[in-house]
């Protein structure tokens, strides 16, 4: 009713409204422009990988249009998926990632809860310290770490180097600090009254964590899980340094070491392996995307 009166009384308003919507149109055009550029940049490599993975070695080295497949073949896929070696890499990667995600969550969720909610001596310093740990790059750490594990092996006889499970110790050094940091942020956004209500209702700290904080911060936990999985799935430096035997390798390193022989690059299979390797994170993203987006917007509304 009000809009009708406004339109009748002041037709100039309509023009103003129109100019506002013109601004909006331009904003949309610019955002689409940059989104398209972004999409081209990020999609070109995987498309090129897909094209190459469908070619035979002869066609790859032939001087034809590299952006077109003249004789599509699945031989690279068949070759990889029937190779025990490649399946071994895939299996190692999967086991390592699942264990690392589990270990990370078991450590970082309670740690974040303690740092965010239980005020104890030095908790603020510790919270900052956790984040600073994450800032130290692995390129600085891998030599000292290697030395450490070697010494531990000498002293105790526990062989860690060149065993896939050494990665279960190494990856959490990357994932735990960051996931803890994410979860501190999520837990901090939960109103203080919620845990006070729980405490008055008779919940212990553990019950407050498991029955209130984890369900309420579930989107944050999903975000942290995705992060931890991606990091451990894609990690390259640590497995390259710490594992050498083919049966201990994870996929990123396995593809490089087994498909590059001297100066001979088996490009078709390398591309196929990389594509297949990118599949699990993609599938996980797709499944958890709804939760993830809910998590990103969790703080937006009150209550």
């Amino acid at each position: 009713m009000t809009t009708v009166t406004v339109d009748k009384a002041t037709p100039t308003r309509k023009v103003k409204y129109g100019s506002m919507s013109r601004d909006r149109t331009w904003a949309l055009r610019w955002s689409y422009f940059f989104l398209v550029i972004f999409a081209i940049f990020s999609l070109t490599p995987p498309i090129y990988m897909l094209i190459t993975s469908l070619k035979s070695s002869a066609e790859i080295s032939a001087a034809t249009n590299p952006w077109w497949v003249f004789h599509p073949t699945l031989e690279n896929y068949v070759g990889l998926l029937t190779s025990n070696q490649f399946l071994r890499f895939f299996w190692n990667s999967a086991i390592v990632s699942i264990f690392v995600v589990t270990i990370t969550m078991l450590i970082s969720v309670p740690a974040a809860f303690a740092l965010a909610r239980m005020r104890f001596w030095g908790s603020a310093v510790l919270a900052t310290g956790v984040f600073l740990t994450y800032l130290i790059p692995e390129t600085l750490l891998f030599i000292p770490l290697f030395k450490m594990f070697a010494v531990i092996g000498d002293w105790t006889g526990i062989q860690l180097i060149n065993r896939w499970y050494v990665l279960l110790i190494l990856y959490p050094t990357l994932t735990v600090p960051f996931c803890t940091w994410i979860m501190i942020g999520y837990f901090a956004s939960i109103p203080k009254e919620l845990d006070e209500a729980a405490i008055i209702d008779g919940a212990s700290w553990i019950q407050t964590l498991t029955r209130i904080f984890i369900p309420v911060a579930f989107p944050g936990i999903i975000a942290a899980t995705i992060f931890a999985f991606t990091v451990s799935w894609a990690q390259f430096l640590y497995p390259l340094v710490f594992t050498t035997s083919t049966d201990q390798l994870v996929m990123p390193v396995g593809i490089i070491t087994s498909l590059i022989k001297g100066d001979v690059f088996n490009w078709g299979q390398i591309m196929t392996g990389a594509l297949l390797g990118a599949a699990p994170p993609l599938i996980i993203y797709a499944f958890l995307m709804d939760y993830y987006i809910a998590g990103l917007t969790a703080g937006a509304t009150k209550g």
Binding site: E193, L194, E196, A197, I199, I200, D201, I212, V216, F218
Partner: peptide, 20 residues
């Protein structure tokens, strides 16, 4: 005595209901 053993109930300004 910790809050849970005081046998009290509290109503907060922002309700503090468990959202899930």
């Amino acid at each position: 005595v910790p809050p849970k053993d005081r046998d009290i109930a509290m109503v907060f300004q922002n309700y503090a209901l468990y959202p899930h």
